[in-house]
Write a protein that binds this DNA or RNA. Structure first.
Ligand SMILES: Cc1cn([C@H]2C[C@H](O)[C@@H](COP(=O)(O)OP(=O)(O)OP(=O)(O)O)O2)c(=O)[nH]c1=O
Ligand SMILES: [Mg+2]
Length: 651
DNA sequence: GGGCGCGGGATAG
DNA sequence: TTCCACTATCCCGCGCCC
């Protein structure tokens, strides 16, 4: 440990952020880099925050060491038995039947910029700005400049460094080109970022070496970009391998257990994906673990100190085991936007920023047709402390106004505060996966198109399905035929009233009112002291006798017009109402509808499959509503035009 | 006790 | 003169509810 010489060379104790071995960093004067970084950082707010975090981790390590010291010989042999058993089980699961290839483009953003501006070739260059750089080319790396380093420090390390601003459209374009090549080798390849992908080449592989060379050549031919590749029996090892001969190189690890053991034994644990700065630090200083092999040597202690989930992971690393299956494609779980600015406590400025962020987030959500019910506000204080505050709503939101409304309330609760960053994230998207759907059920849109199992139909289901409130179509049809509305019930997501109050006791959040009832209005007055739209738990009870009665004939017309409007506004096809009516007669499908309570009172119709099970709670009763035109503004971005074009031809 | 929601943290590109 | 990004995912611990 360098602690003894800390007095002389304080930079050695400053975190190892830029010192971990990285491609292109051989032969760099690490001591000098470390010193410059330290000199530039020392005394800054950022630095102080890092020191706080570091101290916290040191404390954690200290606690672990105490735990280790307390272990008796008996304890140790006990945990050793458990560990051995687990290791044998894991070893038994070893699968050497697959061949995985990991591709990683070299200095990707920088390489793309160089391609578009050849004068940059051979000169040290970084993509990003003075505050942060995304990556640097290999010329710049010789100076110690690297991804995640602030630009102003990089400048000190390399006087002639050229900065190029990021341009994601370019990177996306070139990423697409590389993926075209990947697809030829494995149509089911899966990309983990713009510049990385895993390919299962088991089937196409005669010689791994040749496949890798051929692939890299093809990529270079078709894009002008170089990449590195790693081939191994599982994804964890393939990723390690792709980094070994970077840039523009490859490394093949044969599907042979002895070769794997040899390979893994001397490998520093930091090379493994999932083991970062902190884990490396903890395992080294608490248990003396440096290489993957050490994971097995110290298995008893890993068992004693960590959860079985964590120790399993550590043992897998020691054995060189990794996933060999192809993961199913997952939809995104959250979407966010955040901005950094000069730290300030000027509230007008902060709220203005919040509005900007809400707007970009809303635009991004609309691009992907997302609507979410959990909003998370992220703040970074002037001292770099990160705070997050979340609310889960009863309704799904995606407009700037809605996002800003709730975000403002949360932010108000944090004032006064000096901030340097504000971010907003939406999650818990509206999605059929959120409710136990019968996957055999199809959407109304599907039905109308007659293409129930087409991929576009599935993607449509993913994007535009379940709502917080739904009407069973059969019930709706019953109603249309003159039955009572009394039996129609709405399905709310689980109520989070208490949660909201608990976590943000200064504010009460408005609920989504499905019917305008006197009782709600009355309660609103009673709770006037709280906020504008308070909603008590009592209001979750069904509202009695509040709906007016309109003729069922009229309702039927209205319902059919809704659907007609929906289809029209989405894809511009005007269908005869009688056609829709005829189609609907055959359905055991459902449609969901949603009434915006906001000033615009826009009505949005969502077509959705619905679970067969009865609604969990019946909080409100549906009241008949007046017909309103669908808002095409909200619907236009739903990318189902191509889907409907099929339908157009047929009709 | 399982599930949910929140807040913090680690990791990666 | 300037003084460390942005997007996303997973995991853990905690408190609460059913
Ligand atoms: C590591 C990192 C990468 N990126 C971007 C820029 C990178 O070009 C791109 C791919 O990341 P990396 O593959 O990690 O880095 P790289 O491709 O630039 O260099 P190499 O693989 O040869 O070591 O992701 C960031 O924006 N921020 C980061 O912190
Ligand atoms: Mg790369």
């Amino acid at each position: 440990m360098a602690t003894s010489s800390e007095g002389d060379r304080p930079w050695q104790s400053y975190n190892t952020a830029y010192t971990n071995a990285k491609a292109g960093m051989d032969g760099v004067d690490k001591e000098k880099v470390q010193r410059v970084v330290y000199e530039m950082s020392k005394g800054s707010k950022y630095f102080e925050n890092e020191q706080r975090k570091e101290a916290f981790i040191k404390q954690k390590i200290e606690n672990l060491r105490v735990q280790v010291d307390l272990l008796t010989d008996k304890d140790i042999s006990h945990f050793q038995m458990i560990a051995n058993k687990r290791i044998i089980e894991l070893e038994a699961s070893r699968d050497l039947s697959k061949i995985w290839l990991h591709v990683d483009m070299d200095a990707f953003y920088a390489a793309v910029e160089t391609l578009e501006n050849p004068s940059l070739r051979g000169r040290p260059m970084a993509v990003g700005g003075l505050s942060m750089i995304s990556t640097a080319n290999y010329e710049a790396r010789k100076f110690g400049v690297r991804a995640g380093m602030p630009g102003f420090i990089a400048c000190k390390l390399c006087q002639d460094l050229i900065f190029v601003p990021t341009n994601f459209e370019k990177y996306t374009f070139y990423s697409e080109l590389t993926r075209k090549v990947f697809r030829r080798y494995d149509p089911d390849f899966f990309a983990t970022s713009l510049d990385e992908a895993y390919l299962n080449i088991t089937e196409v592989c005669i010689s791994s070496d040749e496949v890798a060379s051929e692939l890299r050549n093809a990529i270079f031919e078709e894009t002008g970009l170089t990449c590195s590749a790693g081939v191994a029996p599982n994804r964890m090892l393939a990723k390690v391998c792709s980094d070994l001969n970077k840039p523009n190189g490859q490394f093949i690890l044969p599907n042979d257990k002895d070769a794997i053991i040899t390979f893994i034994s001397s490998l520093p644990i930091r090379k493994i994906g999932g083991i970062g700065k902190v884990t490396e630090h903890i395992l080294r200083d608490a248990l003396g673990i440096n290489t993957c092999e050490d994971m097995l040597q110290k298995s008893a202690f890993l068992c004693a100190l960590f959860s079985s989930c964590s120790s399993d992971f550590f043992f897998s690393v020691g054995l060189g085991l990794g996933r060999t299956d192809t993961p199913e494609r997952k939809m995104r779980k959250s979407i966010s936007s955040e901005r950094t600015f000069r730290a300030t406590k000027d509230e007008a400025f902060l709220f203005h920023k919040l509005g900007d962020i809400a707007e970009t987030l809303s635009i991004d959500m609309q691009k992907e047709c997302l609507s979410g019910r959990t909003l998370t506000l992220k703040l970074k204080t002037a001292s770099f402390e990160i705070r997050t505050r979340a609310v889960s709503l009863q309704t799904f939101i995606h407009t700037k106004e809605d996002i800003l409304k709730y975000a403002s309330r949360i932010l108000k609760a944090e004032l006064p505060i000096s901030l340097r960053l504000i971010g907003l994230r939406m999650s818990q998207f509206r999605d059929d996966k959120n409710s136990n759907l019968d996957p055999m059920q199809k959407t109304i849109v599907c039905f109308l198109s007659g293409e129930c199992d087409s991929p576009s139909a599935r993607s449509l289901q993913k994007q535009d399905c379940v709502n917080s409130d739904k009407l069973e179509i059969q019930e709706c049809l019953d109603f249309m035929e003159g039955n009572s509305m009394q039996d129609l019930e709405l399905d709310f997501p689980a109520s989070d009233d208490h949660t909201i109050e608990r976590h943000c006791d200064k504010f009460c959040f408005s609920e989504y009112h499905h019917s305008v009832s006197n009782s709600v209005a009355e309660r609103r007055e009673l709770n006037d002291s709280c906020v504008d739209e308070f909603r008590s738990n009592e209001s979750l009870q069904p509202n009695e006798g509040t709906h007016s009665v309109e003729s069922s004939k009229h309702m039927k017309e209205v319902s059919l017009r809704w659907i007609d409007d929906y289809i029209c506004s989405v894809c511009g096809i005007e269908l005869p109402v009688s056609f829709i009516e005829e189609r609907l007669e055959h359905l055991d499908y459902h449609f969901a509808q949603r009434l915006e309570e906001e000033e615009s009172s826009q009505r949005r119709i969502h077509l959705a499959p619905v679970e067969r099970c009865s609604p969990k709670a019946s909080h409100a009763r549906q009241a008949p509503r007046k017909k309103q035109k669908c808002s095409s503004k909200e619907l236009n971005h739903i990318p189902i035009e191509s889907f409907f074009s099929k339908f157009k031809k047929n009709s």
